[in-house]
């Protein structure tokens, strides 16, 4: 059943996200061809060419913001509309477990976040392969690799993934909790999000303080400590574990609310 749910979830989201990604790809290629970044640098007076270049850069960045925003909007909208709106009348009468609904939504959302991230990187690569940025990017990558090591980079990637998944689950919890209120469900969802965000930040702040204290960062003379990749793991690993635990908590909360406290209007 999970596979079937995901099939429809991807179908429902791809029809909006894919065209957006394609638009970004096309504009990356256009930007590469007319190369507005370097011609703007060379330009010393305002003319039509400068205007076109500026416009194409503007549209490009608008698309980047658009891709990120659309992905986020779809994550929210698929949960709110498809499960708690009118379409929920169909979804919640399917012979499917609530956790399967949640998982299908969550996996698809994470999948699109990864795709969006990769397409942004890809788009930067397309543009940079002409203006000489690519060698600089390669150097940046090398420097990062030297600093963290390959496993370190994978670790950072995993951390980003965990943080993203946790973030999506916080959004789901906010919507589920907001929906428990009888009126002004959307405002209630925003309020729930703010509260959950605050609680998460407090937990993480306490954790970081504890870590800093236990590693001796708070002691006098700590400013002289040299950065080492090992320190990064010492911080990222516990933070990741806490985020995973919080994420599981949010998943269970959503599962409980949608199973035992569901009241569709």
């Amino acid at each position: 059943m999970l596979r079937k749910l995901m099939k429809y979830e991807i179908k429902a989201t791809a029809r909006i996200i894919i065209p957006m990604q394609l638009a970004l790809l096309i504009f990356s290629i256009i930007n590469r061809l007319i190369n507005p970044f370097s011609s703007l640098e060379k330009a010393n007076s305002f003319n039509l060419q400068v205007f076109i270049n500026a416009m194409s850069i503007f549209i490009y960045f608008a698309l980047i913001v658009g891709v990120i925003a659309i992905t986020l909007v779809i994550v929210i909208q698929r949960f709110y509309k498809n499960l708690l709106g009118d379409e929920g009348y169909l979804m919640f009468t399917l012979p499917v477990k609530v956790n399967q609904h949640l998982l299908s939504k969550l996996i698809t959302a994470v999948f699109w976040m990864i795709v969006s991230g990769l397409s942004l990187i890809f788009s930067v690569l397309i543009i940079s392969c002409r203006s000489g940025l690519s060698t600089e990017l390669a150097e940046l990558y090398k420097a990062l690799k030297n600093m963290f090591g390959t496993t370190g980079l994978i670790g950072i990637g995993l951390y980003i993934l965990i943080a993203l998944t946790h973030g999506i689950l916080v959004i789901y919890s906010s919507i589920s909790l907001g929906h428990q209120v009888n009126n002004h469900k959307i405002i209630a969802s925003f309020a729930a999000f703010c509260i959950l965000y605050l609680i998460t930040q407090i937990i993480l702040a306490i954790l970081l303080l504890l870590l800093a204290w236990s590693y001796g960062f708070l002691e006098i003379g700590a400013a002289d400590l040299q950065f080492e990749p090992a320190m990064l793991y010492k911080i990222l690993l516990p933070v990741s574990i806490v985020l995973i635990l919080l994420g599981i908590g949010h998943f269970l909360l959503n599962n409980y609310v949608l199973k035992h406290r569901l009241n569709l209007e």
């Binding site: 919640f92 406290r261 569901l262 009241n263 569709l264």
Partner: peptide, 9 residues
């Protein structure tokens, strides 16, 4: 009817 469909608790 909605109670029967578990759309309401």
């Amino acid at each position: 009817i909605k109670l029967c469909n578990a759309l309401l608790t």
